[in-house]
Design a protein around this nucleic acid. Sequence first.
DNA 1: AACAGCATCGGTAACGTTTCCGAAAGTAGT
DNA 2: ACTACTTTCGGAAACGTTACCGATGCTGTT
Lengths: 335, 335
Amino acid sequence: MKRITIKDVAKKLNVSVSTVSRAFNDKYDIKEETKDLILATAKSLGYRPNPIARKLIQQRSYNIGIIVPEFVNSYFPDVIMEAQKVLIDKGYQVLIMQSHDSSETELKNLETLLDNMVDGLIVSLIREDDNIEKYKELVDAKMPIVFFNRVADKLDACKVVFDDFKWAFFATEHLILQGYEDIVYLSGPKHMKLSLNRIMGFEKAHRKHKREVGKIIPCGFYMEDGAAAAKLMIETNNVPRAIFAANDHCAIGAMRVFKEYGYNIPNDVAIVGFTESRLAEHIHPTLTTVEQPTKDIGITAANLLIEQLENKGMFVPQTIVLNGRLNVRESSVTH
Amino acid sequence: MKRITIKDVAKKLNVSVSTVSRAFNDKYDIKEETKDLILATAKSLGYRPNPIARKLIQQRSYNIGIIVPEFVNSYFPDVIMEAQKVLIDKGYQVLIMQSHDSSETELKNLETLLDNMVDGLIVSLIREDDNIEKYKELVDAKMPIVFFNRVADKLDACKVVFDDFKWAFFATEHLILQGYEDIVYLSGPKHMKLSLNRIMGFEKAHRKHKREVGKIIPCGFYMEDGAAAAKLMIETNNVPRAIFAANDHCAIGAMRVFKEYGYNIPNDVAIVGFTESRLAEHIHPTLTTVEQPTKDIGITAANLLIEQLENKGMFVPQTIVLNGRLNVRESSVTH
DNA sequence: AACAGCATCGGTAACGTTTCCGAAAGTAGT
DNA sequence: ACTACTTTCGGAAACGTTACCGATGCTGTT
């Protein structure tokens, strides 16, 4: 069962391969009738253009690489899959890589993607500084890249980001308005801009309401991190009235420990998460959290990349800030 | 910044392109010294072999397609990412597609993968019957395929499966040994072999302990499904003493509703899940569940596929059954 | 009638590899 | 010294497509 090539179609109709190629590429210099005829017989022969040959001659791989830190939180799969949809429709192929929170793996991933001759990249960084020279090289060499979620200021490239400052502000203000004094922020790693932005939002909310800014404790994005932080609070007798967590997983990890130790949520400790996860509605108590527009992020990143690929050269990098929503649920509202 | 080709390397050393190719492909008919020399200078020139040209001449895409139903449960990302690791090491590229529980999307995914000339496939089916003719065609045409998780009996292909029968049996027996009468199984869709196998395990455990087989209620794999089932039980006054759920998400959805209605778990209703999820340890009460060896499943599937790709033609399809573990936690043990 | 311009097509080089065939030189056996 | 074989390499075809250049025939204008 040999694969049918463009030559077979050409021979069948006694036309040249160029004409068949023209038919398949919607060129202007071909008669409408012959085009239809060619497409029809091609279909009946079961001909599919060989994408590899096309890539070779066009000097484009039609490969797009995506690098994300992890797949544990549903955030990344959600945005990636949405981006992939857009890209596949445009004829691109998507290669997905996880860095597992390691900058070395990130670099390795980058290398394998480059070996595969990706035409462009969509990246969420592990740390802002670690592989920055490598990315800078790529950006300087006009490689189309879109960063999202975790971005680096120093890179002059396209970025799709969430307004972390604003929504951290709203989340914190929500806790303040509920009347809680003593609010602690379990922050993400401080080397991430997104963490710093949220910290600023956290502080601003306090200042607006003339409160002393609550304690900021560096934490992480996984359940274990939240659990460890909660345990430490309990053991050192430092349980605050309310907690604003780095994300939902972190919040849920903390909630588990508090509940184990007999604390009631929200009556003893109120809690709000970040980056709405699939669990937020399904745990007890349901979790107040900030919803990020994962679909929009994916779609926007993909579209920005496509624009870059199509107008290579004359393209000014832009940063797009997307909006969110605060989903208020039981974990933060005392009755 | 033109990409450096094999010709540039050849010219630099005054050797032929064939020799350079030989150096990079570990061929026998090349002197060790010249090989080392070539590799060294190639590296210094920054030469990377163009994978697309290689694919064209070798008539292989080095593309592997993976089709899974969804990414909501962490099960699929876990096995896929593990499979990808193995495949990338062997020089393959992985294309990941979600079918979103729709057979039509599955078929569409299959078509795009074929358009991309995948050399092989790893598939978890939506339904056993829906696209079976298409898959049969591919299998008959000697396309290397490995099915996992959701497989079809009618297809004579490689399969990597979990011993659903055995572990449903153990999970049920665990509930019986805890002394619970009246155990209900919230089963997965009946069109899936895996559901039927688990039902048989559920029944066998009852028979072994001379019990009347508990009720089997068709459910689904998402939290909503479990929640809906629980709500129905409560409203129709049919709450059993224990529940064996289709998977963890289903179990957690049910738990949420029960807790909302004031039921205590496990003292009023005991519950066990299936396919250990990241939440099992982190919800309250912690969830007893059956752990599937996701990593092994991914690795095994990838290796089976590679074997097939390398010994195309003379390869007998085999089915590999992998083992699991019952993680007993709070949700099923009354104190 | 001469010419420009357009529409439509064919032929061929090119993309960067690998693979096949054969050549050259060296080695060993007789 | 002749043959046979091995080692090491070069040349060229091939993979399937697209892009470029040119050829042909037709239409319309002067």
